[in-house]
Simulated assay, not measured.
Amino acid sequence: MTTRSAAALASGTANTAKLFVAALAFTSAYVGFSAYHSANSATQPVTTITLSARETPISAPARRTSPAAREGEVSVDAVPDGGAGCAGSYVARSVVVNPDPDQAVSYAWRLTRWSPAIRTWRTYLVDHDGSAAARRTVEWRPQMSGNPGWYRVELAVKGAATVRSERFEVSC
């Protein structure tokens, strides 16, 4: 038993000594590299940059790009999104008035496209939503890609009449 313990102790001591020597070698190499790098590094020349600014007066007051949403109307504005070709983003806004304020109201947005072949408006995109508020300003952002033509946005509120936007043209 004693010889086995002595052998384990001697083996552990040898491993500890090896790890200590390896750590010492790594540390001295790191310190030597750092000293070499510091000795060879020269200071970089300083470059002075002078910045200037000028004041430009505002010639016209800032105006809001999109009109405020109103009850019974749907307004549609193009949103510049940087898309190429026929890609286009739009924002439709309106005000939803809940016919029964004690209950939640559901509403649906519909983007319709004019079909010259059958001379009628056809559904292109649909989105559904809802609200528990008595009155709420709502917004929808439909996106179209590669399909020029005449469009309009409809907002159908459950228990109320459907309202439609003016038609607008998407062209490439």
Score class of each variant (00 low, 15 high):
residue 125 L to E: 12
residue 70 R to N: 13
residue 116 P to H: 08
residue 58 I to S: 09
residue 92 A to H: 03
residue 71 E to C: 11
residue 112 T to A: 15
residue 80 P to L: 03
residue 129 D to W: 06
residue 95 V to I: 06
residue 98 N to I: 03
residue 53 A to R: 05
residue 65 T to N: 09
residue 87 A to Y: 00
residue 62 A to T: 09
residue 73 E to P: 03
residue 63 R to K: 09
residue 115 S to Y: 10
residue 85 G to V: 05
residue 55 E to L: 02
residue 110 R to H: 04
residue 117 A to D: 06
residue 52 S to E: 02
residue 120 T to K: 14
residue 53 A to I: 04
residue 102 D to P: 00
residue 100 D to R: 14
residue 60 A to R: 15
residue 104 A to V: 02
residue 91 V to N: 05
residue 113 R to F: 11
residue 79 V to M: 09
residue 89 S to T: 08
residue 108 A to W: 10
residue 82 G to H: 03
residue 60 A to P: 08
residue 92 A to M: 03
residue 101 P to T: 11
residue 89 S to C: 00
residue 124 Y to I: 00
residue 66 S to Q: 12
residue 82 G to Y: 04
residue 53 A to Y: 10
residue 42 A to S: 11
residue 77 D to W: 00
residue 129 D to G: 12
residue 120 T to I: 13
residue 50 T to A: 07
residue 91 V to I: 11
residue 129 D to Y: 09
residue 127 D to G: 05
residue 91 V to D: 10
residue 40 N to R: 11
residue 122 R to W: 01
residue 85 G to M: 07
residue 109 W to I: 11
residue 92 A to L: 07
residue 71 E to T: 02
residue 73 E to S: 09
residue 40 N to P: 05
residue 55 E to C: 02
residue 42 A to V: 03
residue 118 I to V: 15
residue 123 T to P: 15
residue 39 A to C: 06
residue 126 V to P: 04
residue 79 V to C: 03
residue 98 N to D: 06
residue 71 E to P: 05
residue 106 S to R: 15
residue 95 V to P: 08
residue 116 P to G: 11
residue 74 V to I: 09
residue 64 R to L: 09
residue 108 A to G: 08
residue 121 W to G: 02
residue 44 Q to L: 08
residue 79 V to I: 08
residue 73 E to F: 12
residue 76 V to N: 09
residue 86 C to A: 11
residue 129 D to T: 06
residue 111 L to F: 08
residue 121 W to F: 10
residue 99 P to D: 01
residue 70 R to M: 11
residue 98 N to V: 02
residue 66 S to N: 12
residue 54 R to I: 04
residue 51 L to K: 14
residue 54 R to D: 07
residue 100 D to S: 13
residue 70 R to P: 01
residue 120 T to L: 14
residue 51 L to R: 13
residue 106 S to P: 09
residue 41 S to F: 06
residue 92 A to I: 04
residue 117 A to L: 13
residue 93 R to I: 12
residue 79 V to Q: 13
residue 93 R to E: 05
residue 120 T to E: 15
residue 48 T to K: 10
residue 124 Y to F: 15
residue 83 G to Y: 04
residue 121 W to S: 01
residue 130 G to Y: 03
residue 89 S to H: 01
residue 77 D to P: 00
residue 125 L to Y: 14
residue 53 A to T: 14
residue 53 A to G: 15
residue 44 Q to I: 00
residue 46 V to G: 06
residue 69 A to C: 04
residue 102 D to A: 01
residue 124 Y to P: 12
residue 76 V to Q: 06
residue 58 I to F: 05
residue 61 P to Q: 02
residue 51 L to I: 06
residue 51 L to H: 15
residue 111 L to Y: 07
residue 69 A to M: 11
residue 70 R to K: 13
residue 91 V to G: 01
residue 43 T to G: 08
residue 129 D to M: 03
residue 108 A to V: 02
residue 61 P to Y: 02
residue 125 L to Q: 15
residue 124 Y to M: 04
residue 130 G to H: 06
residue 97 V to W: 01
residue 65 T to H: 07
residue 109 W to Y: 07
residue 104 A to T: 04
residue 112 T to K: 03
residue 56 T to E: 05
residue 47 T to S: 11
residue 93 R to G: 00
residue 66 S to M: 09
residue 47 T to P: 00
residue 130 G to N: 01
residue 64 R to V: 06
residue 109 W to R: 15
residue 111 L to V: 07
residue 105 V to G: 07
residue 85 G to F: 01
residue 64 R to A: 08
residue 69 A to W: 07
